[in-house]
Write a protein that binds this DNA or RNA. Sequence first.
DNA 1: ACTATAATGCAACTTAGTTGCAATAATTTA
DNA 2: TAAATTATTGCAACTAAGTTGCATTATAGT
Lengths: 148, 148
Amino acid sequence: MNDEQLKQILREFDLKVTKVRLCVLDLLLQSRIAMSHSQITDALEAFELDKVTLYRTLNTFVEVGLAHKVATDERNWLYAIYSEDVQQHNHQHEHHESPHAHFICEACDKIYCFPIEEKQIDLKKAELEGFSIKQHEIRLHGTCPVCK
Amino acid sequence: MNDEQLKQILREFDLKVTKVRLCVLDLLLQSRIAMSHSQITDALEAFELDKVTLYRTLNTFVEVGLAHKVATDERNWLYAIYSEDVQQHNHQHEHHESPHAHFICEACDKIYCFPIEEKQIDLKKAELEGFSIKQHEIRLHGTCPVCK
DNA sequence: ACTATAATGCAACTTAGTTGCAATAATTTA
DNA sequence: TAAATTATTGCAACTAAGTTGCATTATAGT
Ligand SMILES: [Mn+2]
Ligand SMILES: [Mn+2]
Ligand SMILES: [Zn+2]
Ligand SMILES: [Zn+2]
């Protein structure tokens, strides 16, 4: 993706265009897997990103709905941009994650984002008991193609 | 649940019976929601549990398959005992979580465990791509009956 | 009761992320 | 294009959650 396209995405989410945001956005858009703060730091070591600035950049992306984060069992967060979220935002201006699952590899701990069909889960029981469900998230555990 | 029943559960999971384990087990069995380290500390303040001992107790419960833990978006863990896991263990001696979902209340951050039907998700796409799925976890986000 | 082994409790440590604040860069306006 | 406005950046210090090491104590089998 070229520089002008990346800038356009930031502007669509009402974010100022900065060097840090551009390179982080570019990286996350290219990555098939969700990435941690330290993975991003390593991948972008040429930029010598400041630790705090990167955290703030990632949080900002999540706040505006451009990226989403997944808490791992190793008590840290992985960040990902799900391409449909970027496109959806173009059309309808409110942030709402597209339905997708997270595949967590037990061997390498990588997390992959996957498209899934909407509303596949039978939630009658929960709804009967007075729980109102706004959104759901599916986590798959197993072995990824690389580790198999 | 009486003391003898609690001891019996610990023995079935090959754990030594101790004061700390008994009171934590008792609490988690009674709780509808998954509980954090600090919630447990507060609930059992009469026992003046040591911080480290409680962490170790919870980790042990998870290791043997008596309890399970859920990572929250606030980067901490909540622990829960899903009653079917305790019963299942009686019969078949290998630890395998019963299918259930986690409901996360956006208002109070509480996490409830819910029974669900097995295999409700269409995983063809993932499997075609070479991902082998061993287990899945469903997270529901919304508002719980108390907060509504 | 004696012994072997595992659980406990305390202090120190680690890891991941946050807060405050001054310096700097991005956009608006003239 | 320069000045003014406002948001982002980078550094140091801090926090919260959980872990490690080690000496002490409790459990369970004989
Ligand atoms: Mn995702
Ligand atoms: Mn559960
Ligand atoms: Zn893998
Ligand atoms: Zn609630």
